[in-house]
Amino acid sequence: MVIGKNSRRVKESREDQIFYFVVNVILWIVFALIAVPLLYVLAASFSSASAVVAGKVYLWPVDFSLAGYKAVFENSSIVRSFCNSVFYVVLGTAINVALTVCAAYPLSRRDMPGGNLIMMLFSFTMIFSGGMIPTYMLMSNLHLLNTVWAMVIPGAISVYNMIITRTFFRSNIPNELLEASQIDGCSDFVFFVRMVLPLSKAIIAVITLYYAIAHWNDYFNAFLYLTNKKLFPLQIILREILIVNQVNGDMIMDAELMEAKEGLSELLKYSLIVVSVVPVLIIYPFVQRYFVKGVMIGSIKG
């Protein structure tokens, strides 16, 4: 590598110089295409309504104001759905992680009779399912429609995440450790709680984050199973405001002028986008490497 680096510096051909230049240009373009819309939304959310409607905002707030955020937090349905979403994330992720780990560990053990058969039962659901309507009928027969459980029970185990976890257990929990513990009279429960879980913090972090983000962003479960407005998660309200465009009259406090009202409703959309993405963005920089790790483990066949 050292030789490579030196030779690169000493005699970089004209062709290579052009190549590196082109590569950098491509990456800057990709970077800009992704960063600019995000920055624009952020800038618009901190601008004044009139500047947003007049299209004066590009990458920096114009007439800095917090009016959009004020409108967001004064809106009771947004605040309530935000709290609902937080609740679903916490409850749902706890259930997900517990069930996934409990399924993945026994299936990672090669000495358990029938393990492959049970694994096949799990894997089969990845390529075939009962489908939307039979599942809906089941939910309705179990009286789970319009309950909190409708948001956390369907998809309680993602087989994909379970397989990642199982792969991790297989490659990171040495068999010698199990044998040594068994000689010392350690039962499977104790081994699981005392050894496996503490050694698997990394994978538990990965799947916790995957599940938490999936719950935060989940739209379809609520769309399908909930009609009670009090239970709506943020994503449903987001869709109503951002896409269906139903800004209720009571959403805007000073509805004096129609124009101001419309401007504020535009501004509110930007602020709302920021508010809804912030929980994810706050944790994102800290956990990025875990996410990447998850992708890498997932790419290894178990």
Partner: peptide
């Protein structure tokens, strides 16, 4: 350990297949 996950799998994935 597998009991709950398996119960979930059968109830929410295999029962709908009968539907």
């Amino acid at each position: 350990l597998l009991l709950l996950p398996l119960a979930y799998l059968i109830l929410f994935h295999y029962v709908p297949m009968f539907g």
